[in-house]
Design a protein around this nucleic acid. Structure first.
Lengths: 243, 243
DNA sequence: CGGCAATTTGATATCCATCAATCGGTGTGG
DNA sequence: CCACACCGATTGATGGATATCAAATTGCCG
């Protein structure tokens, strides 16, 4: 499915080398690389840009299952066909590898398979966070979590080890309000209003549609009920940090 | 995390034999076998009964992440400690195995590891169904999906290969309204009202609190927007069935 | 600068939550 | 066996959060 390959704290790239020789594809915003229902023959590794994984019901309701960032990958399924679609949100570069090749690699190399398995656990834990958000959190709380999620991925893609790095005072929001809404189980108008609420409460400042300045990170984290997305996930401030 | 070990269509029990010699524990309703935060030292295989996997926020909001049925198992995590709790819903029997033993088994036996990996994919797909439900479906639709989900598990635990088996006209609902609510992201009163709505629409009949008769399975499936939970998951009726 | 699409904002409607009362089954003690 | 108490479920009345519909504004691209 969708994988998180990059973390600040784990050895990585244990099997990403299958993508080394793979062809690279450049994607325009909106371009589709996986369509629900097609045979699942390829896996992709994201080199740059942001993509979205979606599932759309017969009545047109769409759920964004995940966004994909650098070094994430998609495409592996238990079934013979994809049950989700994947499209570019921004300009993006992905490398494409036949699924068979990954299968063989995993079958041949126990270490790779083990690494893969561990990442599956991470993925499950990530998705369960989403389940908790959708089930229990209010609109503004979901948005707070989402902003921290974007901040987290910015940290990973840009290799910013320091949580206080000044670059992290601004959060890049590459996707549309509608994408955010479909990810958070809300409507785009509600997302807009929740941004305004966060701004009125003094937690953030909207610089423009796709750039948010964080004015009160502590309060944002408190509202989100989560400290960060690093693993192990912290529900409270790490020791040494002001709670 | 939480695993689906039993399906109607896949070879199974590839590595469940580690549980053969494991000690068995009998659980009273409400009894806890895993507490969030504890070191993740054990894995469990459910022999009978129903359990729930929950995650509770610091403010007391609780999300039921999953229910567990026969031949499901729980306990493996990417982290050193559990980030969820597991309690018995009904009387239940589980067999308990040191996590280390499972780890070693998977490390030693590539076939087991591969089977494990495949089931992880199933789990992810199941959870993504939940994500879609929580994000896009209304209360009554979520309940319709939930009833089909219980029906599906009844089929698996009782080995009812025939989808039209008369035993499946009644759905057993072992958990409380509050458990259902916390699973579906609703409140218990809303669950009650949605049951009544389904009854007023003629789709079901409440025989008693924990037994539901299905009067119009086709309509229930249509409302749920899903045909069944078998894999590959069908969004429409299988060929040969009346749509 | 003009025009289109995305976003924001406003007014209202709907769905679900909340608060409160009643119902119904179960177990206990008289 | 019945009265009572307790707990979960149901139902009712009301409130609040989010959706919907519509308009105004902003941003973006030619």
């Amino acid at each position: 499915m969708l994988f998180r390959m990059r973390t600040l704290d784990l050895p990585q790239d244990v099997f990403l080398d299958i993508f080394d020789a793979a062809p690279v594809r450049d994607l325009e915003p909106g371009e589709v690389i996986i369509s629900a229902g097609e045979p699942a023959t390829q896996v992709f590794n994201i080199l740059s840009g942001v993509l979205r994984v979606t599932r759309t019901g017969t009545d047109g309701r769409r759920q964004v299952l995940s966004f994909l960032f650098r070094d994430n990958f998609v495409g592996l399924t238990a079934t013979e066909s994809y049950f989700f679609s994947v499209e570019a949100v921004t300009h993006a570069r992905v490398s494409c590898c036949p699924r068979r090749q990954l299968d063989e690699r995993l079958a041949r190399d126990p270490k790779a398979e083990r690494a893969f398995l561990n990442m599956m656990f991470r993925v499950i834990e990530d998705i369960l966070d989403v389940v908790y958000s959708l089930g229990q959190r209010t609109a503004i709380e979901r948005l707070a979590v989402f902003l921290l999620y974007l901040r987290h991925w910015r940290r990973l893609t840009d290799n910013l080890a320091d949580d206080n790095d000044p670059a992290l005072r601004e959060i890049q929001v590459p996707m549309s309000r509608e994408d955010i809404a479909d990810f958070l189980g809300l409507k785009k108008e509600t997302v807009s209003r929740s941004f305004r609420d966060l701004e009125e409460r003094g937690l953030i400042r909207r610089l423009d549609t796709h750039r948010i300045r964080v004015d009160d990170l502590k309060a944002l984290r408190h509202l989100a009920g989560i400290w960060d997305f690093a693993s192990p996930r912290r529900l409270t401030a790490p020791p040494g940090q002001p709670a």
